[in-house]
Design a protein around this nucleic acid. Structure first.
Lengths: 234, 234
DNA sequence: TTAATAGTGTCTATCAGACACTATACT
DNA sequence: AGTATAGTGTCTGATAGACACTATTAA
């Protein structure tokens, strides 16, 4: 008993707390989620996770992202944010959930963990995730939908240089709406620091053609906000 | 060693995870925070907390609120929300933080835990809270400031029936700004479900005098939002 | 050439913010 | 009376959303 109590303080903590990450991306006009094989359930999938030991929660989340999605923290733009903490679960575990946004081309699901990107709607219907992970996923999507309104995180889902319509398709996909192209462009360009023109546009040698190219601006928050249409779905 | 490992799963979890609650209120035109004596530090104070055992995190938060602040969950309006999770701390503990909003008159700091309500600014300067708690408090205030914009949580900080100016003072206190009385009233009344007229206004016997009285409406979200002035302080 | 999309211009309803004014309460 | 606050009316500038039109690209 004494041994057990000692263990409670020094050994036990890591086992009981996990960081679970919902890695979201946009591909082919649909929202995608990174999942990996669940060893405990035959045929099941789960959100990538890692146990918390002595490292800070944010560091653990970054580690999960790198080992499961092949995304290094330094690499390109990346949005990672703590979502909320759930539990205790049925197994007594506390689950600290994170959301991450990654451009599809940056995301390389790790083969060692049998990672795979699911389309969100497919995944919801077939019930390949357990209830807890599905809950996390719902919250993650809702958080991202809300944050598109007043932050620049949408730009982490496109590859530089990008066009305004590409950025618009991110909003349309995440919000499940269609937006007015003219008004969208106007709003984006009217918001300081959201995007900047890509002048790096190979010189006079090649004739530029196609839509205007942009890069991410320096702003993190949007003033004014990009409010979603009132009739937007859930 | 076997005993220790067993303990890690069944016994250990509760010890390592705490729920810490930042209970905020408005009194005398200032933001107040509930703190209690910190037994481990002479002269120190800390946010009320409780260890997580088998109960759900939200239930633990409600328990903290009740035992430290004398606020029963059922009683009156109340805003409680998970803030975020910090850690591991220096002592290896994971801290799941919550914010709560309570009207001053509803808050009765528990004498058993030597509870006391501090004015936020006093508390910040004197450094009576440790760094971790101060961080939680900052995040809590910022969360509440943001949520005043698009939710009805401000009404949990006034006592029914209340006047529009009373509600306005909540906004002014939390945001540290002065608002235009006429425009504020117009916006509140133009937002469906924010407040409803208090017709319950003792009959014809007593002559009603003073400003109009209202009660909380049924809406949780504000459409349109009550945006804070652009020049609002951090 | 036709269809689809990118981009510009402009109009209108709505809202935030400011100001002027009246009414009521407290001293 | 005089001051402070509650409440109404109204104006102006900014913004969201809609529509019309031109330019460019791909079949």
């Amino acid at each position: 008993l004494v041994v057990a109590k000692e263990a409670a303080v020094t050994v036990a903590t890591p086992v009981a707390v996990t960081v679970d990450v919902a890695v979201l991306t946009v591909r082919q006009g649909r929202l995608g989620v990174l999942a990996e094989r669940d060893g405990t359930t035959a045929g099941g999938w789960r959100l990538p996770y890692e146990s918390v030991r002595e490292r800070d929660l944010d560091a653990v989340a970054a580690s999960v992202l790198e080992s499961a999605g092949g995304v290094a923290e330094a690499r390109d733009a990346l949005f990672v944010e703590q979502l909320r903490t759930y539990g205790p679960m049925d197994d007594g575990r506390i689950s600290v959930a994170y959301v991450a946004l990654v451009a599809e081309s940056t995301l390389t699901p790790s083969s060692v963990s049998s990672g795979r990107v699911f389309a969100l709607d497919d995944l919801h219907e077939t019930g390949v995730l357990d209830e807890a992970d599905a809950r996390v996923l719902d919250d993650a999507v809702e958080r991202v939908r809300a944050k598109l309104e007043y932050t620049t995180i949408a730009t982490t889902l496109v590859v530089e240089p990008f066009t305004i319509p590409e950025l618009r398709r991110v909003y349309e996909t995440v919000w499940s709406v269609t937006l007015h192209p003219a008004n969208f462009r106007r709003k984006v360009l009217a918001t300081p620091g959201f995007v900047v023109a890509d002048d790096d546009d190979q010189g006079a040698t090649t004739v530029r053609r196609g839509p205007d190219l942009f890069r991410r601006g320096t702003a993190a928050l949007l003033h004014p906000a990009m409010l979603r249409p009132v009739d937007a779905e859930s």
